[in-house]
């Protein structure tokens, strides 16, 4: 058997392609859900971490540190296999989305914090001197400027979340990787795995390239 037939077996690829596509849909569903929920969670956490009363700031900081330290795979297994013992039974989809969101939210919080802290203090002072409320200051003055700064690292985080969705296959989620391994078993040929790898590359590579472009542009402006 030659190498080409083993890894790039066209009939096998064509046969298993619908399975891979259904896996891709699941992967995108988990990824997009977790990214959006993570963004919201991260923004709230970052604002709490910076501006909440002291008694609330500390637990938020601890949360952020814990969820940046814990391996995602460990968290996912705890959520899926351990929580049922205390009566919390989440579906594979929810387990994956919740785990990814908890971790992504922690990273996003730090990204937003860095972005907001990069805004010169004069912007806050001018807003306060004009009598703007805290909410107006954030919405009209601070966040629009911070967003520009955080877009490259946020996009990076999105890429990481998308890649980490592959871990959902561990909790029997029929995502792209899981479908590929099943297709491999059915076809007795590793071509579907190569196909999955290529599909991951095909939609993540452009995002990686986009981040590089953002970073180049910001770098030029800073220079």
């Amino acid at each position: 058997m030659d190498l080409f037939e083993t890894f790039f077996n066209v009939p096998v690829f064509i046969r298993t392609f619908p399975l891979l596509m259904s896996g891709l849909v699941v992967t995108l569903q988990i990824g997009v859900t977790s990214i959006i929920a993570g963004l919201v969670l991260g923004l709230c956490l970052s604002l709490l971490r910076m501006y909440a009363p002291a008694w609330l700031r500390l637990p938020v900081a601890v949360y952020i540190d814990i969820f940046r330290s814990i391996p995602l795979l460990v968290l996912l297994i705890v959520v899926y296999y351990a929580l049922p013992f205390v009566g919390i039974r989440l579906s594979p989809f929810l387990s994956a989305a919740v785990s990814l969101t908890l971790v992504s939210g922690a990273y996003t919080a730090e990204i937003f914090r860095a972005g907001i802290q990069a805004i010169p203090s004069g912007q806050f002072e001018a807003s306060r001197a004009l009598g703007l409320s805290y909410k107006d200051m954030m919405i009209d003055v601070v966040l629009p400027q911070a967003i520009k700064i955080v877009i490259p690292p946020l996009t990076n985080n999105c890429i990481n979340v998308m890649k980490d969705t592959a871990l959902a296959s561990v909790v029997a989620m029929p995502d792209l990787l899981k479908q590929a391994t099943q297709a491999q078993a059915l076809a007795a040929n590793p071509t579907p795995l190569i196909g999955a790898a290529i599909i991951y590359l095909a939609f993540l590579w452009p995002l990686v390239a986009l981040v590089s472009r953002f970073e180049n542009r910001l770098g030029r402006r800073g220079a």
């Binding site: 912007q123 002072e125 004009l130 009209d140």
Partner: peptide, 10 residues
């Protein structure tokens, strides 16, 4: 109203 040394325009 306040006017700053470093303008602080948005």
């Amino acid at each position: 109203g306040m006017v700053f040394q470093s303008f602080n325009l948005f």
